[in-house]
């Protein structure tokens, strides 16, 4: 049964000092689905996503990726670094700040893992990297350095870098939040085409439109807990949930203020 689940979280708790950010999260991420995590800022959605990549270490609970425990086993023993790396290999990560390596070209960024981790010969690594750059529409920018690319282009290179390692699941941490509004479209289009290809994706986003149209699975987090989850259409059809309603209204207000501007 667990092999139909890409990621499972059971009772996941994360604290920073006395501040409990995640208060016992239970969540299943299914293969081939796009799961969007939405919620007000401070609700713990980015922390939750980072826990799924073990970039944050959860303080309690169990996370399984493709069936295997991530970071700690069920008895709360810390797993060896090699095992953490092995389980993490299932996961690709796309960050809000792109985090491209500035001293490598776009091609170099995408080829790095192929060369250093998969140990592919240079030519083969570059060909594969090029194929992924082509997929995100940046074949003609292969020799550019990150400083020579726009934010949207950098984020697309970062997506190609994550895809090049052939992950089972790609995690997106607010992938368009540091982009100018006119550049978010190109990144969302790449993500949409990934979703159409059946990639398993978990996306922390403020793009409610993307969540409504692309996600199959919607999770509304509030104060470190899953307040509401389900099929995207069902969740948005429940505006009677007071916190969700309040959250969505801030979006409507923002939109309205732009219109009335």
């Amino acid at each position: 049964m667990s092999d139909t689940l890409a990621i499972t979280l059971r009772g996941v708790v994360k604290r920073y000092g006395s501040n409990t950010v995640l208060r016992g999260i239970d969540l299943d991420i299914r293969h081939g689905e796009v799961t969007c995590l939405i919620g007000p800022s401070g609700s713990g959605k980015s922390t939750l996503l980072r826990c799924m990549a073990f970039l944050e270490e959860h303080d309690a609970g169990l996370i399984r990726v493709a069936g295997d425990p991530l970071g700690f086993d069920a008895a709360r023993n810390r797993l060896p670094q090699t095992e953490i790396a092995r389980v993490r290999r299932n996961i690709g990560m796309v960050f809000q700040q792109f985090n491209l390596w500035p001293h490598m070209t776009a091609l170099g960024n995408v080829a790095e893992g192929l060369r250093q981790v998969l140990r592919l010969p240079k030519r083969q690594a570059q060909e594969r990297a090029m194929a992924h750059l082509t997929r995100v529409g940046l074949a003609d920018r292969a020799s550019y350095y990150p400083s020579q690319l726009s934010g949207g282009q950098q984020q697309r290179v970062a997506i190609a870098r994550a895809l090049a390692m052939d992950p089972k699941i790609v995690l997106f941490d607010e992938p368009t939040s540091s982009l100018d509004p006119e550049l978010t479209g190109e990144v969302l289009n790449v993500m949409r085409s990934l979703a159409d290809d059946g990639m398993t994706m978990v996306v922390v986003t403020h793009e409610i439109g993307f969540a409504a149209h692309v996600a199959q699975h919607l999770v509304f987090l509030d104060e470190g807990q899953v307040a509401l989850e389900g099929r995207a259409g069902d969740v948005f059809a429940q505006p009677w949930h007071p916190r969700l309603r309040q959250f969505l209204e801030t979006y409507l207000d923002r939109g309205a203020s732009v219109l009335l501007g």
Binding site: R88, G92, M93, N99, E112, Q116, R161, A162, M165
Partner: peptide, 18 residues
Amino acid sequence: IPPGHVEAGMCIGLSRLQ
């Protein structure tokens, strides 16, 4: 060095030394 650049390396599967 931005911590995210190191995290990106971890997520790609680079070792500490790499």
